[in-house]
Design a protein around this nucleic acid. Structure first.
Lengths: 343, 343
DNA sequence: GGGGATTCCGAAAACGTTTTCGGATGCGTT
DNA sequence: AACGCATCCGAAAACGTTTTCGGAATCCCC
């Protein structure tokens, strides 16, 4: 059932039917009602392909996800962000298209999406320092919103991000208040912008108490269970091991916990741990009482917000960039306690 | 730069340029080369929207992911499957569109995708027993491939699945061979088809040794860390606790491990654990030597295969359904050992 | 009852491709 | 020289909408 058929069934022109369905004012309310009823009865749905060609809009937004060797982006955090964004899209009649490409073809993928006219805008994931994708997207004129920030990007752009610096600063202060002075940082990859900011927050809090970073107590790696285990193990085997850890994610945190417990130590008593909790639907940090003390910020909510922002930008491409800084809350769980007396 | 402009720049008709670029034989090789060169020079890319309208194909496949109350599908396993499928799609010039909808609107979402002409086919996720979506997709005539199987579906359909029954049967036999007789099953939700099959494999192996299932040693819940912890805790607190666990996923397994260790027991010595390992990129089961003994099957690979199958079906909608049963391998890690003498 | 404004609707162009149908040219064969 | 057959190319229709432009009623107001 297409527009022409529906129109002839109603004894109207396609023009009028189209206008009736799209809420244009220049159509009699009586005939509009008649058209609506007929459309519902024959469950007519306008052909997306034709709409897209006629209007010149794709009514779709893209997420390109690089894959393979270097750095794995397909992680649970990403999945939850996507889910949040997807909710916003479908509420607004947009489609979400995911483009999985080898990581050396990412820039090409953006150009491609743009010139093929497959999407109206994109979300940029996992920004790095001086991220080349930002000037690229400006150049090709594709509206975009960044999830995170990219230190060093010359041009202004829209972003939504968690206040990572502040979150880790507060977490560090909390540990310091408990008497911990040797704190291990199990960070994400430090070419990622968020990891840099977290490290800064960590360093700032230490500096404010006259302490400085011990390079032996800093690790930077993928946020996997195994990497967390490896990093924590190395630090715990030091002559002067840390009494507390600041950890980049829930998953890394599980590895850290395993390292602690496999040495016969108990988390929360012998060694304290604070993680960053993205509030993932499939990785809840406990039920009523949190397992880990954590800095928490829902990445799913961030996805919703980023999507809304992007659709707004698409509607008004010349509006000034919008930014949104989300504060993480510090929630107290069972994984922290006062520093042991004679560490 | 569109086709008409490129054609006039070359002094050719749009027809010829189109044919040259799409490899049709009725064009002189010399002019084809000239066209190709010009296309590359002006980096012309045909407009997807126009192609879709002209050819009547969407060159896109859909994944609808229900979200909200009932059952959370946005999990790491899903993410890895998507990544695998996405690789296949982009290699073949297909787009992947994700439709995130409230779970009571899932059927409507399929009808919508179909009648709007937004996709050429879909992948069906997380099939349940007597899944109503299978007859629905048959009815609306949308090519599809199921990830998993749905016991009770009357009509034939294409699927790719892991041999879950056999995997859990083998794992159970392995534990029995080690002398374990009280084995706890920490299963997924048992309205999901794969969970039913795993339970069957478990029961079959027990029955073959003259044992039967103890209802107290069976749990069925979401595959989260918390749920795994809860289930294992309950069983370990039984008067006659299990000496081994069979666990549905890596994440549940971490909860089980936490339950074991929080009781001062050691996994692999006091209590054995076998998990199912989907070989997730972000949840590797150890590096060189696996942490958990596991039945392993790459869900990413399953995604690749399912995508290939779907694109084939789209090309030949009348071909008979194709099926693909993947065997899981049993890999030995550090989480299993002989049953303790006096359990 | 004549004028302009308002209301409602339709014909046709446009979006950028693919595809059908046919036409022109050149070549080999009789 | 006539014919058939490849070979190569173009005009125009088609895909299913939206949108522009205009036209015919009807209404309102003096």
């Amino acid at each position: 059932m297409n527009l022409k058929e529906l129109a002839s069934k109603l004894g109207l022109s396609p023009t009028t039917v189209s206008r009736a369905l799209n809420g244009y004012p220049e159509v009699n309310e009586a005939t509009r009602a008649r058209v609506m009823a007929a459309a519902k009865r024959h469950n007519y749905r306008p052909n997306t392909r034709a709409i897209r060609l006629a209007t010149g809009r794709a009514m779709a937004v893209g997420h390109v996800i690089p894959v393979a060797t270097r750095h794995e982006i397909v992680n649970p955090v990403f999945a939850d962000f996507i889910a949040g964004a997807g909710e916003s899209y479908s509420r607004n009649g947009y489609d979400m298209v995911l483009s999985v490409v080898p990581d050396d073809a990412e820039e090409e993928a953006y150009r491609d999406l743009r010139s093929r006219g497959a999407v109206d805008g994109v979300i940029l994931h996992a920004p790095r320092m001086d991220d080349p994708r930002i000037p690229l997207l400006h150049e090709v004129g594709l509206p975009f919103v960044v999830h995170g920030r990219a230190t060093g990007a010359g041009l202004p752009y829209s972003w939504v991000d968690v206040n990572n610096r502040r979150a880790f600063q507060r977490a560090t202060e909390f540990l310091l208040d408990l008497g911990h002075t040797r704190i291990g940082l199990v960070n994400g990859l430090e070419f990622m912008d968020f990891a840099i900011r977290r490290r800064t927050g960590f360093a700032d809090a230490l500096a404010a108490r006259g302490l400085s970073i011990d390079p032996d107590l800093c690790a930077s790696d993928e946020m996997t269970e195994v990497a967390g285990f490896r990093a924590a193990s190395a630090m715990l085997d030091l002559p002067a091991p840390p009494t507390a850890f600041l950890v980049a994610s829930m998953i890394s945190g599980m590895g850290v916990r395993r390292a602690i417990e496999s040495r016969g130590l108990r988390m929360g008593r012998d060694v304290s741990v604070i993680i960053h909790d993205d509030d993932l639907s499939y990785m809840k940090n406990g039920e009523d009482v949190p397992i880990f003390t954590a800095t928490r910020s829902s990445v799913r909510e961030a996805g919703r917000i980023a999507a809304e922002m992007l659709m707004l930008r698409i509607a008004q491409p010349d509006a000034p960039p919008e930014t949104r800084l989300l504060e993480a809350e510090l929630i107290i769980g069972q994984s922290t306690g006062p520093a042991p007396r004679n560490g």
